[in-house]
Design a protein around this nucleic acid. Structure first.
Length: 370
RNA sequence: GGGCGGUUACCGAAGCAGUCAAACGGGGCUGACUGUAAAUCAGCUGGCUUACGCCUUCGGGGGUGCAAAUCCCUCACCGCCCA
């Protein structure tokens, strides 16, 4: 079994252990994002000391730079970037959404005009599997189309049909490659399907059932956190939680804020990724605990903009309760200064802190001591 | 001592009679960010006001003119050149 569920005291919080070719991970977990083969501003050993167990990278970006030839030369991304833990790779499905102005969807796949050099990039359900195998990904995502929000039922329906077809083709191709390469069970990457269907129950249910029948190693919930309200998102998430196989990990793609994650964990989600802690850190936003417990009825954390004038003379660390490298050494006042003179250290320290904040939140949700 | 040139908002710098509270940069302030085209993007930056709008500004003072940052006189300071 790649995923073993552990006893949980909470009715719906799922605890477990996910086994990948590069090690075991406690669920629920959060993946820092290393789109281009690096968590921006942070080194792999710093990620380890923060407590990150797995990171996420991106097929669409890695195909272009450094290119698969370079990654093959290094025998995969792990050795290339010197990260020995598990890596999940997104297929490029999100770029089908975020770069929608530069792409065209055909039945066959998705074609992009590269924003780097204008060249044509063709993603198919099959070639993104091959690319992720070449990258050496531990958790491979099928190609999907993440529809925008809002979108009509007709569009969502058509889009889902494509996504389901792609999922089938991806799965079939993956099985073929596993067989060809005679991969031992322990070194075989995991393959995840992605639920879509917009905000329509009929489509979401159909999507979850169809993917469940294909027997993936795990299931992602895609197409959320793209502009819909919190209420709608929770509703869609609840539908999906109900129909996805309970013995497989569930991954809510791209989510989210600390509050979003705690809520989703309570609804039964096991895996998360989001650019928020790293991107916002670069923009001067830092998270801090207000309460020791994420279960606190009141707001349990705050967000500060370190560039704000009010921190000019503030000698406190970002979060007095935090044990990270930034908080154990540096003041808000100093960080504000670093941001105002645009020293790279500002982003680095704040990124380390935000990731440590997310990590401590996850450890608490895993039921482990902080 | 003489001859030019200059002095504009926090800084730099346009504007050279009305459409000027004054372009544009920088700096400052505030906000956004959810499978990263994101060290990015947006707003504000004379005063009062939610806004309409009103008020005070373009080195100082004095003029001309319906109207002046823009023209004239004068003073101060800065720069270059000549003695």
């Amino acid at each position: 079994m790649r995923y073993v569920r552990l006893h949980s005291q909470h009715r719906r919080i799922r605890r477990g252990i996910l086994t990948t070719p590069h090690g075991k991970i406690h669920t629920p977990f959060f993946m820092p994002i290393a789109t281009r083969g690096a968590v921006k501003n942070v080194s792999p050993d710093e990620l380890l000391s923060i407590g990150a167990e797995i990171i996420l990278s991106n097929t669409y970006h890695l195909i272009q730079r450094p290119g698969l030839a370079v990654l093959k030369k290094h025998h995969g991304l792990h050795s290339f970037m010197q990260w020995d833990g598990p890596i999940l790779t997104d297929s490029g499905g999100y770029q089908v959404f975020s770069l929608s102005k530069r792409r065209k969807i055909t039945g066959e796949g998705a074609t992009f005009r590269s924003e780097i050099d204008g060249s044509t990039i063709h993603l198919t359900p099959e070639n993104v599997i091959d690319a992720q195998l070449a990258i050496g990904s531990d958790i491979i995502m099928v190609l999907d189309e993440c529809p925008p929000y809002p979108c009509s039922y007709e569009y969502a329906k058509r889009s889902l049909a494509t996504t389901l077809l792609w999922a089938e083709r991806g799965k079939r191709h993956f099985e073929k490659r596993v067989k060809q390469r005679r991969l031992a069970p322990a070194s075989r990457p995991l393959l995840f399907g992605i639920v879509q269907g917009g905000v329509y129950k009929k489509l979401r249910d159909e999507s979850a059932k169809a993917l469940g029948a294909l027997d993936f190693d795990g299931y992602a919930i895609g197409g959320l956190a793209v502009g819909e309200s919190r209420k709608i998102r929770d509703r869609v998430l609840a539908w999906n939680m109900k129909l996805l196989p309970p013995d497989k990990p569930r991954y809510l793609m791209g989510v989210g804020t600390p509050a979003d994650i705690v809520d989703a964990v309570r609804m039964g989600v096991d895996m998360f990724d989001c650019v928020i802690p790293t991107r916002e850190a670069r923009h001067g936003r830092a998270y801090a605990r207000i309460s020791n417990s994420t279960a606190s009825m009141k707001k349990w954390y705050s967000v500060m903009n370190l560039r704000n004038e009010k921190y000019k003379f503030d000698k406190k660390p970002i979060d007095p309760r935090c044990l990270c490298a930034a908080c154990s050494t540096f003041s808000r006042s100093y960080l504000r200064h670093l941001f105002s003179v645009q020293e790279g250290l500002a982003m680095r320290l704040t990124t380390i802190h935000n990731l440590a904040f997310y990590q401590s939140m996850m450890r608490e949700l895993q039921g482990l001591r902080l």
